[in-house]
Design a protein around this nucleic acid. Structure first.
Lengths: 261, 261
DNA sequence: GACAAAGTTTCACATAATGGAACCAAAAGG
DNA sequence: CCTTTTGGTTCCATTATGTGAAACTTTGTC
């Protein structure tokens, strides 16, 4: 029975339908949606009509399928532009990618989760958005820990409460206590590691992007594999990453708060 | 009043609120939204609450501002990957840009408006996303007319009703009648022109990207200025543009519907 | 031509949205 | 320190809106 949870209000239900379509990753038939949703026929039908009429979904009358609509694409651009760090940081991220030749992640914190807002892949030189936009856990990723380390106590508390502490690998820090110890170490040295805590073989070195007030407004990381490099070699890059992060920070500060003394 | 139009249903209204927040491009205060929306205080407030609770918006309690939320970013990401021509068309657009050396636009139709999903600028070689995402009128742009020309009658009707027919320049087609005549000519020759109809000095040649069923799923255009070239010279490129458009179409078709006979 | 499956419309009913007004908190101003 | 204003949140009677079983219309199948 509805593993989901709280779907209160008409708007909430409509958004659930949207999510359902999105989760398929391809055009879906009405009947497919009907079988997997708890909504009665007519209700589901009306939601699909409304969402289509609103441009959030697109209906292909020939094939009788629904897919995500252009209005969402437009919102995608707005969201991208508004997640402020990405457009500002772009040239700096490019620079870091070029200098290291490794995979770069730019992330922001949202409700205890990590939101990747930009990415440069080592293999495929310029790919984007298709990669960005993903969300991930904070407690077991480099960027996540880097940002958690600079959260004010109250916000940290809230964020920790939202972590699953699922043990992805044998190195995963699987309790708030262990994580807090690690966060202290991160603050001491100014950068965070991912020691195969999320995926085996994947390591990274991450640095927070701090506002003037000392809050983490994002994080930047260089990722690689144990097959190709070592944690020590990645740490050698920490200075460079911090430098780039500082420049992004300065740029962001002047952009977001042009008027100040 | 309310220049907008038909905002039917609760869901539609909520989405309008979403759009409103998105359109600001920065975190917005409740009161700002209140002044520019027609909704009464309590109603607007409830929508904001709902959308925030649903993760479509994020509320910053310190500053008391609303911005786009993670769920939206996730949906937007999916929409970009699934429903936008941009990722599929990218290599072909690159090719066209290189071969022509002119500004290229890739657009899709969004409720009677043109949504630019990718762009290559003649001057600055690789700029993107920041530029893309803009919306423009359909009745006075090359890509817009190219797509309108291949809309089924019913959809065309709806789209025409949404055009302002504002006379941007002396060449603007400023009535549905004139536009319909033009659309017929476009269908006859397979490509559309922008004869300085939107901005003086700006001309373009645009081609629709058609699905197998003959529907316009997007449009592709080469833009230049009267200072640098002529309409005739642009038309000489029509064959090339059509070729590229056909290849994008084929790619899109096979991508969206992998299983078919 | 009969049968089934998928999709669309209807309509009596109840839930859920509505918005004016009251309320609260925190600045501004005297 | 007390008043006023501005910005934000909660109440609650009213009614518009959403609801979903069932009937109906395609469209496809044997």
């Amino acid at each position: 029975m509805g593993a989901e949870g709280h779907a209160d209000g008409t708007v909430g239900k409509a958004l659930d339908v949207l999510d359902m379509v999105a989760s398929h990753g391809r055009p879906v038939r009405f009947s497919e949606l009907l079988t997997e949703s708890a909504f009665p026929k007519a209700t589901l039908y009306r939601f699909l009509q409304t969402l289509t009429h609103q441009g959030m979904l697109a209906h292909d009358p020939d094939r009788g399928t629904y897919s995500l609509g252009v209005r969402l694409v437009r919102l995608a651009h707005a969201a991208w532009a508004q997640s402020s760090l990405a457009p500002i940081a772009r040239p700096y991220v490019d620079e870091l990618a070029e200098k290291t030749g490794e995979t770069i992640h730019l992330a922001q914190m949202d409700l205890g989760q990590v939101l990747y807002v930009d990415k440069r892949n080592a293999a495929r030189p310029v790919e984007m958005f298709a990669q960005a936009g993903k969300v991930g856990p904070a407690y077991c990723t480099g960027v996540g820990k880097a940002m958690l380390a600079y959260l004010p106590e109250e916000a940290l508390e809230a964020a920790l409460a939202r972590q699953s502490f699922h043990r992805h690998t044998e190195h995963t820090l699987d309790s708030p206590a262990k994580l807090r110890t690690e966060l202290k170490a991160i603050r001491a040295r100014g950068h965070a590691f991912d020691r195969e805590e999320h995926e085996p073989g994947i390591i990274c070195c991450a640095v927070p992007i701090l506002s003037r007030a000392g809050r983490a407004i994002g994080a930047l990381s260089v990722t690689s594999t144990t097959a190709r490099t070592t944690l020590a070699a990645l740490e050698a890059r920490a200075g460079l990453i911090k430098d780039i992060a500082a420049r992004i920070s300065a740029e962001a500060e002047s952009w977001r708060f042009p008027e100040q003394g």
